[in-house]
């Protein structure tokens, strides 16, 4: 039912692997997935940008009750991060124990296994953030 669908995972690999996103030429709104129309100003021109690799943690929580495909990783941390350029992004925080979490802490992007599909054995890789080294 809730499986990794390979084409869906694959088609967004620019964002998932490298935080490549689209920035509206007019209002600067950042879109993580290829847009046709800017959701904010409705204009239609975008630049592909690489989002900053570092940011600070502005909120966090720990998932204790996981969805399908994340059972093994539970508990895991979901962080709300403000990147250097002001873009806000939701990400798992890895290499971090809950007691080490601090609001405002500096985090940096890393590349991890996000999810593994049991029946098909496909591995979905993508970004996670970790405390800055």
């Amino acid at each position: 039912m809730f499986r990794i669908k390979v084409p869906r995972y694959w088609r967004h690999k620019d964002f998932r692997y490298r935080l490549n996103a689209w920035k509206c030429n007019h209002c600067g709104e950042v879109h993580f997935f290829k847009p046709l129309v800017c959701r904010r100003c409705r204009l239609r021109e975008f630049n592909k940008v690489m989002l900053p690799e570092t940011g600070k943690l502005i909120a966090y929580t720990i998932v204790r009750s996981p969805p399908c495909g994340f059972e093994e990783q539970t508990p895991y941390i979901i962080g709300f991060i403000e990147l250097e350029d002001g873009t806000r992004i939701l990400s798992q925080i890895t290499d971090c124990y809950p007691e080490e979490l601090k609001l405002g802490m500096k985090v940096e992007v890393t590349f991890r296994r996000v999810r593994e599909d049991d029946p098909d054995k496909i591995i979905a890789y993508g970004y996670k953030f970790r405390p800055a080294i």
Binding site: Q73, T94, T110, F111, R112, R113, V114, I123, Y125, K128
Partner: peptide, 13 residues
Amino acid sequence: ASLDEDTITMAVE
């Protein structure tokens, strides 16, 4: 390695 790491992720790091 952590549970979410493997040869590929460490190679990328």
